[in-house]
Simulated assay, not measured.
Amino acid sequence: MEIEFRPATEDDLELMMAWRSHPDLYENFYIQDKELDWETHIEWWEGRTNRRDWIIVLQENDRWRDVGNVSLSDLDTDCPEVGIYIGEVSSWGKGVATKAVEFALSWLRTQDYSETHARILKHNDASQRVFEKIGFEHAGLARDGEYMYVYTIEETEN
């Protein structure tokens, strides 16, 4: 299994909407509690500021396919937020999310950020395990029903 990342584009909107409309996925989103409609999805895309989004591309059995999204938001602050979802449910539990978060941390490191955070719903045990395994520390509550995790980005040796 190999994983790569490419910038998300407008051409990815239909696939991202399909992923974000899956109930097993959106049950772990703070601001979404039902399938998306196209206008809401377009408003989200067009309203994105101070963020980067990448599509996670997975290779298995000599075939490449898009399986999820990793994002960094609040890039105009000292502590951007990492967000991730694996839209292809069959790819859950294969280490894809871990590699995506590590990719986001690597990108932040190249941009000289020293800290990042993630907000994870209390019932999302799988995401909590991913972020804790990487070294994020539980830092209490973020919003109602959501935990805050923080990570100190250390410089790599040249």
Rank of each mutant, 00 (worst) to 15 (best):
I3E: 00
I3F: 05
I3T: 08
E4D: 10
E4W: 09
F5H: 02
F5D: 00
R6T: 04
R6V: 06
A8C: 10
A8E: 08
A8Y: 01
D11C: 04
D12H: 09
E14P: 01
E14Y: 11
L15K: 09
M16R: 08
M16A: 09
M16S: 06
M16H: 06
M17F: 09
A18N: 15
W19I: 09
W19A: 07
W19Q: 07
R20P: 08
S21W: 06
H22E: 15
P23R: 12
P23G: 10
D24L: 14
D24K: 14
L25R: 10
Y26S: 10
E27Y: 11
E27R: 15
D33M: 11
E35I: 14
L36E: 14
T40Y: 04
E46D: 13
G47M: 08
G47I: 08
R51V: 04
D53N: 11
W54L: 00
I55H: 02
L58N: 09
Q59E: 15
N61A: 14
R63F: 14
D66H: 13
V70C: 05
S71P: 00
L72N: 01
D74H: 14
L75Y: 04
D76F: 02
T77F: 06
P80K: 06
V82K: 04
I86S: 01
G87Q: 07
W92M: 07
G95C: 01
V96K: 01
A97Y: 05
A97C: 07
V101F: 03
A104E: 02
L105G: 05
S106T: 11
L108N: 01
Q111Y: 00
Y113S: 02
S114N: 11
E115R: 11
H117R: 10
H117W: 00
R119C: 03
K122N: 04
Q128H: 12
Q128C: 11
Q128G: 11
V130Y: 06
E132A: 11
E132Q: 14
E132W: 04
E132S: 13
E132N: 08
G135K: 06
E137R: 15
H138G: 13
A139E: 15
G140H: 10
L141R: 11
L141N: 12
A142Q: 07
D144H: 12
D144P: 06
V150I: 15
V150C: 14
Y151R: 06
T152S: 15
I153P: 01
E154N: 13
